[in-house]
């Protein structure tokens, strides 16, 4: 595969991973704990996309994938609210490990529900932008990766603007830094935290729908996505939003290059080994930690 194609594909994968990692780190900062069900929100987004297109196709409607995106985002945002209601709200005054364990159980429930109602076989989500490869400067580029970069890029830019440019974003960052202090300042901390779950769900679901065309959707894929986001956050510096995004891009590039050079299995194995090496040699992540003791 020519280098340009490889890089575009890596960028597309990285953009989708970045969506996953962004939601993961937002919830991590807001709730102060790992959401183990995060990968299953990605999977449910893919399931929603497949289900919606199947239902519409059965009704004789053949809509391009891009039309389904808002629907998928809304559905997965609601899933995020469910995670907040079950995995965070009842445990908000307990140690972070409680939420960690609860979301592991929740992830199992999501996975089993998807298996029970959707079946265990992988299925492809509709393409966002269908059609033959686009030829740019003599290089054939797949439409789906290009669309993925565009949609994911827009979503990332939107969240960035929300966090950095609006009062909601400032309040959210205040809550992430010190929940009690933010409360003392009159911020509705719980509302902001639950909002972070909904946003994370929407971003994760979007990633699931975008990735589901090339990489298929299956009920058991949740933990793999969660692990990517977790690794991106750890190597990017625990709690750092830009760090997590860079981490996600690095993971995608690493996977693409090692898969092309060796094999997909080696890509995975070397990713885990590198992660262990980073944790041991540079536990504060490649770019330094943003928050202190959290779990």
């Amino acid at each position: 595969m020519p280098t340009v194609q490889l890089l575009v594909n890596a960028l597309a994968l990285g953009a989708a991973y970045a969506l996953v990692a962004l939601g993961f780190v937002l919830v991590l900062n807001a709730a102060g704990a790992v959401n183990f069900a995060h990968g299953d929100m990605v999977m449910l987004g893919g399931v929603a996309a497949v289900a919606a297109s199947t239902l519409l196709a059965a009704g004789g409607l053949r809509l391009p994938g891009i039309v389904l995106v808002p629907l998928v985002v809304i559905v997965s945002g609601l899933v995020g609210l469910v995670v907040a209601a079950v995995g965070f709200w009842p445990l908000r005054d307990r140690p972070p490990a409680a939420m960690f364990v609860a979301t592991i159980a929740l992830a199992a429930v999501f996975e089993q529900s998807a298996t029970a109602f959707f079946g265990p076989e992988p299925r492809a989500a509709p393409a966002i932008w269908d059609g033959p490869p686009v030829i740019i400067g003599g290089i054939a580029l797949g439409r789906q990766p290009l669309a993925l970069i565009l949609v994911a890029g827009l979503a990332l830019a939107g969240v960035y603007a929300l966090l950095e440019r609006t009062q909601i974003g400032r309040s959210f960052r205040a809550v992430a830094q010190d929940r009690e202090m933010a409360r003392a300042l009159g911020l509705r901390a719980t509302r902001l935290i639950v909002g972070a779950f909904a946003l994370a769900g929407g971003l994760a679901g979007l990633a699931g729908a975008l990735l589901g065309h090339q990489f298929f959707v299956n009920a058991g894929q949740g933990p793999a996505y969660m692990l990517k986001a977790y690794i991106a956050t750890a190597i990017g510096g625990w709690g750092s939003v830009p760090g997590a995004l860079v981490g996600a891009l690095l993971i995608a590039l690493f996977e693409m290059l090692v898969s092309a050079a060796l094999s997909a299995v080696w890509a995975q194995a070397l990713l885990y080994l590198s992660l262990l090496a980073i944790l041991l040699l540079r536990p504060q992540g490649l770019f330094g930690e943003a928050v202190g003791r959290r779990a």
């Binding site: 972070p96 692990l227 750890a234 625990w238 885990y272 944790l279």
Partner: peptide, 20 residues
């Protein structure tokens, strides 16, 4: 090597070992 890591890194490191 990994037992000295903090909770969230310990969980991740053991998960990586399990995946390997």
């Amino acid at each position: 090597v990994v037992l000295r890591l903090q909770t969230h890194y310990f969980a991740l490191a053991t998960l990586a070992v399990a995946q390997l």
